[in-house]
Amino acid sequence: MLAGAMAGLLGGCATAGDAHDPIEGFNRGVFAFNEGLDKAVIQPAAKGYEAVLPTVVRTGVSNFYGNIADLFIGVNSLLQGKPADAVTDAARFIFNSTFGIAGIFDVASEMGLEKHEEDFGQTFGRWGAEPGPYLVLPVFGPRDVRDAAGLLLDLSADPAGNLDHIPTRNTLSAVRLISERATLLPADKIIEEAALDKYSYVRDAYLQRRRSLVFDGRPPREPDAE
């Protein structure tokens, strides 16, 4: 295992790779492992989930998790110095938890309270932390060092993942994973169609996406090297 990882690391150095991806060889190994896991277990589960449940139910499930997330999105909005956003996030959580019946209905969006997307990785980025090298984590997938650190905090703050009742905790986490994977099913086909090399396509998309999120969807355009 270690020997394999070392060989991978050396392989990564040998290719004239991307500056953001110094351990490309190792990352490619983990990426292949994740792809295998996805093909064998997670993607089929997501497809079944999509086939069996009507859209209304899937929307309800996704809203339920989204509601819990809003609480932490609010915390991150505050940490990023966006108090107005934080107020919106808190109001969303309050309305959806009550009128939206434990978050199953997203009444707040209908009221015009916009949903945000924030996490600790973005907060670090907002504070000026550089993304650092690209990493592919087993199961969790693409991250950079900054987001991997953010992920640790996201996980320790996650209410579903910290329940004492183990079966409930595992069920909640598994359903969330499958529900999120199901919303990505259309993207699979697009990536297959688009990518010359899936690994680097996913990597570059991840890095661009995170950069965009740190700038709240309006990153300055990178210089066009022509």
């Binding site: 991307d18 688009a194 990518a195 010359l196 090399d197 680097s200 396509y201 570059d204 998309a205 661009q208 996406r209 950069r211 965009s212 999120l213 969807g217 990153p219 990178e222 090297a225």
Partner: peptide, 13 residues
């Protein structure tokens, strides 16, 4: 799409 450019995403590959 979602902050990912369909064009510049090809640059490094």
């Amino acid at each position: 799409v979602a902050g990912v450019s369909l064009v510049t995403n090809y640059r490094s590959s």
